[in-house]
Lab assay of single mutants.
Amino acid sequence: MAEQVALSRTQVCGILREELFQGDAFHQSDTHIFIIMGASGDLAKKKIYPTIWWLFRDGLLPENTFIVGYARSRLTVADIRKQSEPFFKATPEEKLKLEDFFARNSYVAGQYDDAASYQRLNSHMNALHLGSQANRLFYLALPPTVYEAVTKNIHESCMSQIGWNRIIVEKPFGRDLQSSDRLSNHISSLFREDQIYRIDHYLGKEMVQNLMVLRFANRIFGPIWNRDNIACVILTFKEPFGTEGRGGYFDEFGIIRDVMQNHLLQMLCLVAMEKPASTNSDDVRDEKVKVLKCISEVQANNVVLGQYVGNPDGEGEATKGYLDDPTVPRGSTTATFAAVVLYVENERWDGVPFILRCGKALNERKAEVRLQFHDVAGDIFHQQCKRNELVIRVQPNEAVYTKMMTKKPGMFFNPEESELDLTYGNRYKNVKLPDAYERLILDVFCGSQMHFVRSDELREAWRIFTPLLHQIELEKPKPIPYIYGSRGPTEADELMKRVGFQYEGTYKWVNP
């Protein structure tokens, strides 16, 4: 592979701008107003304001973009700056750019259920340069409990009458099928589907988006991507930290609602779906819905739930269990780990287990898709061969690698495990991989909904998990304890083995 010439960040961002501006969906010269509902909250200060700053800094926003914060707290732009700027990672050389960014910011205080507050917000936006005809993007960085009041008031008082209007809704989209349907029906009564952007930030990850290209742009994968060759698929999300004093919020939802029903299920769809007619948003989402419709409700015998306990040999936070978090209700049975087996009941995947695993306070930070292939028929190497695996590593250190057998150097035919490896950090030294939120917010500006969740996708996802969630809430089974920093409950490994996964433990990928 030829040595790549190092590029400056300015040059890299210039390439990104060229890609972005050559499309006809990006209205570079139009006025846009980006409204952050819930501007005083954690999500706004840690993710949304920093993301908008990065896009502005790199010249990736339309030229005439204004940012308006809205929340109940009586704040000023200076207050917003004070709480969000520490997350910007701005350099001293960017000081003038930073001043320009905050000059485009404003803030309006108001209630979430008060019509007069929204009329005041609308008047404020109209007073901005060309504000009355601007395109408006409303980001709901809010708890779902206020979605209905907020969307109703936005629709009645704050819509642009000339430009387009788009609304970005953060997960969780309800707690179960019934609450999700209620919320979807409410929002759909106010906005068209092409105006609604239900954001799952995992769909903005580079390697998640790469799944489609790997599958449908490489001839070698087509013939082997089926039940005849693939023994099982494992989708993993692991965090090495616990709730760390923020367990009160987590306890309301648990690990299945927080990660599995959305992030992991979306990745499953991209692995299992048929080739779409095109890369058009609805063509892709149509195929994802077909996959979900082929999955039956989760069966309790295919589920393992766990909850982390303190590690007596650990240090600091590792010595504390979930129930030691003062914000967690006493005696909570909320799971911090889950392993679930699903089956896609169609011709391509009949009988292939899709194993979804996620948890907190585990032994490493990792998100990946792992396809394990069947054993080689007619073994001539005296059971020395391990199964081939194709691994798409989402985070950290984005990579695609194939675990395969090669001859060990020497005189004899002794096979050993090795890999074919594409590590993004080595291959793409001159490429700026956008943060997931950067990519998705740019998608909203461009009107691309491919990486957002459609209402029928959402409904099918909740259909699969709601009976299990209701059973857990009714019966309150005690989750299996696992030690902070471990791989999780051993019962999860036993479940995976029972459905056909072979864990060798003899080879570990190392970032080159």
Rank of each mutant, 00 (worst) to 15 (best):
M207Q: 09
Y197S: 00
G204Y: 02
A78H: 15
M37Y: 12
W225P: 02
M37Q: 05
S29W: 12
D100F: 12
T51G: 08
Y249Q: 03
D58H: 14
Q178L: 07
P144V: 00
S184P: 01
M212Q: 04
L61Q: 03
F221R: 02
D114F: 08
Q11A: 14
K205F: 00
F241K: 04
D200T: 04
D42Y: 00
S29R: 12
R72W: 04
R136K: 05
Y197R: 00
F191L: 12
T76H: 09
M207E: 03
N126Q: 10
Y197P: 00
D176Y: 02
Y197N: 03
R9W: 13
L211T: 07
Q83A: 13
L130K: 10
C232L: 13
V146S: 05
S189K: 08
W225R: 00
R166N: 04
H129C: 10
R136P: 01
S8I: 12
V146F: 10
I196P: 00
P223G: 06
L61P: 02
E244C: 15
K45D: 03
L75F: 15
P62T: 07
D79Q: 14
T243K: 03
F250T: 01
V12I: 15
R57A: 08
F34G: 05
Y202S: 02
N105M: 12
I255H: 03
L140N: 07
M125Q: 13
Q178H: 11
P223M: 06
G254E: 03
I33C: 06
I224Y: 03
E18Q: 11
F56C: 05
K46I: 05
N126V: 08
M212I: 06
R215P: 05
R17I: 08
N218T: 05
A109C: 15
D228P: 05
K205H: 01
F216N: 02
D181T: 09
S117D: 11
G110Q: 11
L137C: 12
R81A: 12
L75S: 13
I52C: 12
D79L: 09
L235G: 10
L214E: 04
F173Q: 07
E94M: 06
L121T: 04
I220Y: 06
I256L: 10
T10Q: 09
E19T: 15
R198P: 03
Y249F: 14
Y107A: 07
R182F: 13
V68K: 05
D181N: 09
Q111K: 11
F237T: 12
